[in-house]
Nucleic acid binder design. Sequence first.
RNA 1: GCGCCCGUAGCUCAGAGGAUAGAGCGCUGGCCUGCGGAGCCAGAGGUCGCAGGUUCAAAUCCUGCCGGGCGUACCA
Length: 546
Amino acid sequence: MRLEALVRTAVGEVLSSWSVPTSVAIPVERPARPEHGDLSTRVAFALSRLRDAPPPQVAAELAAALASREEFQSVEAAGGFVNCFFRPGAVHAVLRQALADGARYGHGEEGRGRTVQVEFVSSNPTGPLTIGHLRQAALGDVVASLYSELGWRCVREYYLNDEGRQMELLAQSLWARYRQVLGAAEPIPEGGYHGDYLAAIGEELAGAWGDAYPVWDEVARARFRDAAVTRMMEMIHEDLDAIGVRFDVWTKEGELHRRGLVQEALEELKKRNAVYEKDGALWLASTAHGLARDPVLVRSDGTPTYTLVDIAYHLDKVRRGFDLVVDVQGADHVDEQRQVQLALKLLGVREGFLRYCLHQFVTLKGERGIQRMSTRAGRFLRLKDLVAEVGRDVARYFMVMRKPGSHLVFDYDLARNTSMENPVYYVQYAHTRIASVFREAEKVGAVPADLPGVDLSPLDDRRELDMIKELDRFPEVVRSAAHEFAPHHLCEYLEGLSGLFHPYYAHVRVLGQGPATPARLALLAGVKLVLGRGLAILGVSAPEAM
RNA sequence: GCGCCCGUAGCUCAGAGGAUAGAGCGCUGGCCUGCGGAGCCAGAGGUCGCAGGUUCAAAUCCUGCCGGGCGUACCA
């Protein structure tokens, strides 16, 4: 980021001496091939018309004007590209700054004074969390952490659907299990929940309550519903603890009803003429605004739908004063998302207030085979059990190492592999190795007291400079990962940095190398700092020893 | 049928207008007794699903097909 700014500034100064308007963007990129420089710009292509000269000529003129600057070793024109090679001193300055910044390195200011709410998981309390929820849990948690890095205040929120038909079915399913334990041939209701976890709870309740609820009446309904929700929440908390996700706020659907927000949202929509009646139900007029279908807001029996409650909930988020709301949801929610976005727009909520982080589903590969999971059918891998097998670090990392919009195949065998073939260990082990070097250095008193003040000029090896240039990218990686909801960029970055470090470590000795030793220790400290910070954002531990 | 997402190395995936398309795993070959070793180096492997189009420049943008996922509920 710092190096990019150097190029941008240098090019900008030349352009302004050429009286090029400042509106001309200066694209700066990292060439794929080292012979194309540390950084390059293709601004000459855009300038070609303005300067009335072919791109190669403009590039040559620009390169000539830049070559004399002290930060560059050399600047070359190649076709329309201008390739910049930095002097080692300019690169060293990046490391020095990173070490001086310490834990603040990469921390941004854009969110200062602003609050983002990230809503995720929000699974119905109808069963424990599964590997399917894991992707969302990890994704939401990391997106929140990324925004924190950018200086935003973050609220992690879980929306709890503790009302409605599904809860009814859950309660009745539990009651059926309870009856079965007591010897009745009570079937699980149609569309009910078949998981073993309800059988276990049913057995407990039978022991505690005996035959007190022989029929499915109002009393039983209330009793079993309470018991079911309480138990489900316990399980969900266990699962969240297992992967280290904590929520700041839990919002229950019931509260939205009690506070009159649902009714209010409906009234507001009616005022905007966005609601019409048909077949005894109330519908949102979405097709009039280009959507594929109109959703029902109030059923003909007078009960509100999920969509209406969802709209009410988001209206409440507006009132709560968040500057940005991010909802992490699965691909099955796209249609719903459009409806909510439309409703908010009709209600005058500013565009961009609500952004969705959409993710595709997870399939399992490995000894368990690829299988389709279903909580309802009782066919799933519980999150807690998965974490017990592969560990929290691997579970979290694997869930965010792919682009959210891509399907994710969870490679069970790779996840359980504890060698460096597993990317998580590959990154963690880089951190550990450095920690180990410092332990050794400590023993011989080789650790400099003032790392940022160390003379870095011995760092002249290509691999050393490459690592520092990689450190330079960290702030930008964090920024783009946050804005694009793309934590996988951070994973790839960490793997890439580790991939520079490991070979270096294998070939270059640090201790006992005279003046090179403090410089190399400073370099390693920088790498360790960034690896540690990156892993922390991912919620993955950065061990000092493994 | 319609809408959205996805088709890139054998596998899992990056790359979202720029230079010779990348990584990890797997495969092939070669190294490693010092410290701090859950090792290192090299190589093979691709008509970027197919066909058109736009552009000086397309994996990337547009159109149409083919294949997969999700949705298309008075479920949540």
